[in-house]
Computed example of a mutant assay.
Amino acid sequence: MSVSLTKGQKISLSKEGQGLGRVFMGLGWDVARKGGLLGGLLGGGSGDIDLDASCLVFDQSGALVDEIWFRQLQGMNGAIVHTGDNRTGAGDGDDEVIRVDLAALPDTVKALVFTVNSFQGQTFDKIANASARLVDETSGQELARFVLSESGSHTGLVMVKVYRHNNEWKIHAIGEKTTGRTFHDMMPAIKAAL
């Protein structure tokens, strides 16, 4: 059963005492339509919106050890794979996916921080139906969903942290609004989430 996460919520990802193996973080979104009948008939949107999902890997000391994003689609010796950049948000379901083999990550990895940013600089008030979900890839079961529904003038969001605690993987919904066209611009907020 999927858990709908709220900002600040933490849950364990272990299932019946077993650790998870392969998971993926899926990001989906649509362009917000302007209101009214004419807006709907005329398309009403503000064009395509290029959101980018990133996964940043941190060790126990809080140092960044790897970054997986549209300019580097693999990390941690293939244990983390970004399936590619979606520049429009068109279509149903997940628009960008980052696959993670948790079992293949070295013990030195403490946390994975997943972010989303608007590469072209459009603000989140231009985005509709944005959500991130963590899925057990083996069973296909959605473990957690985080709705990115807060519109506003921000261009980035530190979504969730998947972290290791007492040899168990947990998820923490961060939901921190920030600005930036890539995760590099968002590093102060990302570091604060550790």
Rank of each mutant, 00 (worst) to 15 (best):
residue 168 E to S: 11
residue 157 L to K: 12
residue 169 W to S: 14
residue 138 T to G: 08
residue 144 A to E: 04
residue 164 R to Q: 10
residue 163 Y to L: 05
residue 147 V to L: 06
residue 156 G to E: 03
residue 185 D to L: 11
residue 166 N to Q: 14
residue 134 L to A: 08
residue 178 T to V: 12
residue 158 V to W: 04
residue 161 K to Y: 07
residue 143 L to P: 13
residue 161 K to A: 08
residue 176 E to I: 13
residue 137 E to V: 03
residue 169 W to H: 14
residue 172 H to V: 01
residue 146 F to M: 07
residue 156 G to L: 04
residue 129 N to E: 06
residue 168 E to R: 11
residue 162 V to H: 01
residue 133 R to E: 01
residue 175 G to D: 08
residue 133 R to S: 07
residue 162 V to L: 07
residue 170 K to P: 00
residue 145 R to F: 01
residue 182 T to E: 03
residue 183 F to D: 01
residue 136 D to R: 08
residue 162 V to E: 01
residue 160 V to M: 10
residue 148 L to D: 00
residue 187 M to N: 06
residue 152 G to W: 09
residue 128 A to H: 10
residue 155 T to Y: 02
residue 128 A to E: 11
residue 149 S to G: 15
residue 174 I to P: 00
residue 176 E to S: 15
residue 144 A to F: 00
residue 157 L to C: 10
residue 149 S to P: 09
residue 135 V to F: 01
residue 123 T to I: 09
residue 129 N to I: 07
residue 161 K to C: 03
residue 168 E to Y: 00
residue 154 H to E: 09
residue 127 I to Y: 05
residue 144 A to N: 03
residue 168 E to N: 10
residue 187 M to D: 07
residue 126 K to Y: 00
residue 173 A to P: 02
residue 130 A to W: 01
residue 164 R to N: 06
residue 149 S to V: 12
residue 187 M to H: 10
residue 162 V to Y: 01
residue 177 K to H: 14
residue 136 D to Y: 08
residue 155 T to Q: 10
residue 158 V to F: 03
residue 132 A to D: 00
residue 145 R to E: 01
residue 187 M to L: 15
residue 144 A to Q: 03
residue 133 R to K: 13
residue 183 F to I: 09
residue 156 G to V: 06
residue 138 T to N: 12
residue 176 E to A: 15
residue 170 K to Y: 05
residue 151 S to A: 09
residue 153 S to Q: 13
residue 179 T to W: 07
residue 137 E to A: 13
residue 167 N to K: 15
residue 161 K to T: 07
residue 137 E to I: 04
residue 164 R to A: 04
residue 183 F to R: 11
residue 176 E to Q: 15
residue 127 I to V: 15
residue 148 L to S: 01
residue 183 F to G: 02
residue 126 K to N: 03
residue 126 K to F: 00
residue 185 D to A: 15
residue 155 T to G: 04
residue 181 R to F: 02
residue 127 I to F: 06
residue 143 L to N: 11
residue 172 H to S: 05
residue 177 K to A: 14
residue 134 L to V: 14
residue 129 N to A: 13
residue 127 I to L: 09
residue 150 E to S: 13
residue 125 D to Q: 15
residue 134 L to C: 11
residue 167 N to I: 09
residue 140 G to I: 11
residue 146 F to Q: 02
residue 125 D to S: 15
residue 171 I to P: 04
residue 185 D to I: 10
residue 168 E to A: 12
residue 130 A to H: 02
residue 143 L to Q: 09
residue 134 L to Y: 05
residue 127 I to S: 06
residue 139 S to G: 01
residue 131 S to Y: 11
residue 159 M to F: 07
residue 173 A to W: 00
residue 138 T to L: 11
residue 159 M to E: 07
residue 135 V to L: 03
residue 139 S to E: 01
residue 176 E to L: 13
residue 142 E to H: 05
residue 146 F to N: 00
residue 143 L to W: 11
residue 134 L to M: 11
residue 161 K to V: 08
residue 149 S to K: 13
residue 173 A to Y: 00
residue 165 H to F: 10
residue 136 D to K: 07
residue 132 A to V: 13
residue 140 G to Y: 05
residue 146 F to V: 05
residue 141 Q to I: 12
residue 165 H to T: 09
residue 134 L to R: 08
residue 157 L to P: 01
residue 144 A to D: 04
residue 186 M to G: 08
residue 155 T to C: 03
residue 187 M to W: 07
residue 139 S to Y: 00
residue 173 A to N: 02
residue 176 E to V: 14
